[in-house]
C-alpha cells in the first residue's frame, strides 16, 4: 500500500510517541484538527491532550515552552505551522535552543525537534512558501534535516526525535503527497550521510528536500540529451556531508547546487566553497547554482518563473559542460 510523505512523518510521530512517553507533540492546530497538512492526524486521539496539544497562536511561546519542557525531561516536537511564521521564534531558537547546551557545558540537553513545513510550489499566499534553511544552518548548535523521500520522512523524523541535540526538521510541503510503496517502519541511512539517488558520470547535482524529485526529473531529461547526471540528496544541511560531496565531484568533475532558497548566501555558496577546497584540481568547470532569485518569494501566479525547475537545472548543466 502506498504511503505519502505526510503519512510517513505521521507514522514516525506515532511510533516515537508509542516508544517513549516523554515525547510530546504541540503547536498550532496540531491537536483536534490534526495539523493544517494533517501530519499530526490522530495523535491527540491516540495519546491524549497532554501529549499532543494545541497551543495559543504564538511561535516564540511554542519554542520557548519546548525549551522548558525539554529542561524538565520531555522530548518535545514543536510544529511551526509555516516557514514564514518561524520568525517570531527566531530569538528562542537562535539565542536559547541552539546555545543553552553549550552555555551549560552540556549539563542542559535540549532534545527538541522543530517541525517546519517549508518551500514553495503549492500556489500559496504570501509568507507560506519560504525557504529559511540558511538561517538555521548558519546557527551553531542546531542540526538541520530535510527529507526528500517518504522513507526519509519516516526514518529521519525518528532520528530527530531520538537526537539529544535540537533538530530543525524541514518538511518539503510540496512533496507531502509524494508516494512510496515502502513498508513502514523503515530505517534509512543516518541523516548526516548524503545519499546518491542516481549515479552519473558527467555532472554532480546536489539537492535536498523538495528539489530532490526535481533534480531526478532533470536527470531523466538530461539522459535524453546524452548527459549523465549524478543526483546527490544532501538530507542533512547541518552538518553537511562534505566527504560525500567532494567524492562525487571527484568522480564527475562538475557540480551544480540546486535549492529553492534565494541564491545569495544560500546553501549553494557554502557547498561551492567546500567543493573548491576539497576537489579543486578535479573541477572541469566552476560550481554553478540553480536556485530561486534574490527577490522576496513571488506571488503564487509568478512562482513558476521564480522556482528552479528542470529547465533551470538543465541550463546549468549545459553551461557547466560547455566549459
Amino acid at each position: 500500500m502506498a504511503v505519502t510523505m505526510a503519512q510517513a512523518i505521521n507514522q514516525a510521530l506515532k511510533d516515537a510517541m508509542s516508544a517513549d512517553d516523554r515525547v510530546l507533540m504541540f503547536g498550532e492546530d496540531v491537536g483536534r484538527l490534526g495539523g493544517v497538512f494533517r501530519v499530526t492526524d490522530g495523535l491527540q486521539e491516540m495519546f491524549g491532550e497532554e501529549r499532543c496539544f494545541d497551543t495559543p497562536l504564538a511561535e516564540s511561546g511554542i519554542i520557548g515552552t519546548a525549551i522548558g519542557l525539554a529542561m524538565y525531561g520531555y522530548r518535545p516536537i514543536a510544529e511551526m505551522q509555516f516557514d514564514g511564521f518561524t520568525y517570531p521564534a527566531f530569538e528562542q531558537i537562535v539565542s536559547h535552543l541552539a546555545k543553552m547546551p553549550n552555555r551549560s557545558r552540556g549539563t542542559v540537553k535540549l532534545p527538541v525537534t522543530v517541525r517546519i513545513p517549508f518551500g514553495g510550489g503549492i500556489g500559496a499566499v504570501e509568507h507560506h512558501s519560504e525557504s529559511p534553511e540558511a538561517y538555521w544552518a548558519h546557527t551553531a548548535g542546531l542540526k538541520v534535516f530535510t527529507p526528500g523521500t517518504p522513507e526519509d520522512g519516516y526514518s529521519m523524523m525518528r532520528e530527530s526525535i531520538e537526537s539529544d541535540d535540537p533538530v530543525i526538521f524541514l518538511e518539503p510541503k510540496r512533496r507531502y503527497w509524494m508516494k512510496s510503496d515502502q513498508q513502514l517502519p523503515v530505517t534509512t541511512q543516518p541523516a548526516r550521510e548524503a545519499v546518491v539517488r542516481r549515479e552519473g558520470t558527467d555532472v554532480s547535482v546536489f539537492c535536498y528536500g523538495p528539489m530532490v524529485r526535481t533534480a531526478l526529473e532533470a536527470a531523466d531529461a538530461a539522459a535524453d540529451e546524452g548527459w549523465s547526471l549524478e543526483i546527490v540528496d544532501l538530507r542533512s544541511l547541518a552538518p553537511l556531508d562534505t566527504a560525500s560531496i567532494v567524492a562525487s565531484v571527484k568522480r564527475t568533475g562538475r557540480a551544480i547546487v540546486v535549492h529553492e532558497a534565494a541564491r545569495n548566501l544560500g546553501l549553494g555558496a557554502e557547498i561551492a566553497a567546500r567543493i573548491q577546497e576539497g576537489a579543486f584540481y578535479h573541477l572541469e568547470a566552476p560550481v554553478l547554482r540553480a536556485t530561486g532569485f534574490d527577490t522576496p518569494y513571488p506571488p503564487a501566479k509568478l512562482e513558476e518563473y521564480w522556482l528552479p525547475d528542470v529547465d533551470r537545472i538543465l541550463d546549468a548543466v549545459e553551461r557547466s559542460l560547455a566549459y
Partner: peptide
C-alpha cells in the same frame, strides 16, 4: 535576552503538571 526566560519557566511548569 530580556524576558525570554519566562517561557522556559512556563514550559517547565507545564512539564511538572503533565508529570
Amino acid at each position: 535576552p530580556i524576558g525570554t526566560q519566562a517561557l522556559h519557566a512556563t514550559g517547565f511548569a507545564m512539564g511538572a503538571r503533565f508529570d
